[in-house]
């Protein structure tokens, strides 16, 4: 059966890997290529590079980082942040990325998703949702969690699936960087709403958080950052723990 995936999320600002709390208060944590290479050697299943400032400045500086990473990292590489045009996707793939993830541009022009998935195949186009709790529901945000969109995150997930995304990555802004566990009701609501694979992001601080998520939802993958950047647990330790609890992962 399909294995649950562990994805290393590396947020990039200029040439540094950075990490914030609730997508703010960014701190440098290292060189993105050193980190991706280390995580690959230690058995990560995928790498997700997010350009933390691209959607603010309207550019992406990640292509060179991707080019270097693709020479030594032989697992899927996804790029997010600042993708606005078909040409941007082409440049990302040409650099060695396998998939791109879109948030802000998808919200501005939803038809861009259907256009992109027709050209590159839906396996290549991921919809990214940055969700923040609003009472009993969640609102989708854009521009790296800075701006409200008025969209209900769950409805937006369904819309993204209809537009042709191949996977959905959902980041809980409330939990992101807190190391206090995932927003499980949010992830569960998204998984129940769509049939494409879902990646959960935001809040992982311990192996138990990841286990809890896999046990309580049908999510396909987790994206983790703090655990790896701050050496809280090794990838091997995380996978051994999950295997012990009967969660199937690649060894």
């Amino acid at each position: 059966m399909a294995k649950k995936r562990l994805i290393a999320r590396i947020d990039v600002k200029n040439e540094y890997a950075i990490k914030g709390i609730q997508l703010e208060g960014l701190r440098k944590v290292g060189n993105p290529n050193d980190l991706s290479q280390r995580y690959y050697r230690n058995g990560i299943d995928e790498i997700l590079f997010m350009d933390a400032v691209a959607s603010l400045y309207g550019r992406s500086n990640l292509f060179e980082i991707i080019r270097l990473a693709a020479r030594e990292v032989f697992v899927p590489i996804t790029l997010g942040g600042g993708i606005r045009l078909v040409d941007d996707i082409e440049a990302a793939l040409h650099s060695g990325a396998d998939k791109v993830t879109l948030n802000t541009q998808a919200i501005r022009t939803p038809d861009f998703i259907s256009e992109a998935s027709k050209i590159f195949g839906s396996q290549c186009i991921l919809g990214s949702i940055e969700a923040k709790r609003k009472g009993g529901s969640w609102e989708a945000y854009c521009d790296t969690g800075r701006n409200e969109t008025g969209l209900d995150a769950i409805e937006w997930a369904k819309r993204l699936e209809g537009l042709g995304v191949g996977e959905i990555i959902v980041t809980s802004i409330d939990q992101e960087g807190t190391k206090k566990g995932f927003d499980i009701p949010l992830v569960k609501a998204i998984c129940d709403a769509v049939s494409v694979p879902v990646i959960a992001c935001g809040g992982a601080g311990t192996p138990a958080h990841i286990l809890d998520l896999f046990q309580k939802t049908t999510v396909d993958a987790v994206a983790i950052a703090s655990i790896l950047h701050y050496n809280l647990f090794s990838i091997e330790a995380l996978k051994s723990f999950l295997l012990l609890q009967n969660i199937q992962v690649r060894v």
């Binding site: 059966m1 399909a2 839906s122 191949g166 996977e167 494409v196 694979p197 396909d220 690649r250």
Partner: peptide, 11 residues
């Protein structure tokens, strides 16, 4: 049952 489409996974 228990599998998604597209099949995006290690298997």
């Amino acid at each position: 049952p228990g599998e998604k489409l597209p099949h995006v996974s290690w298997n």
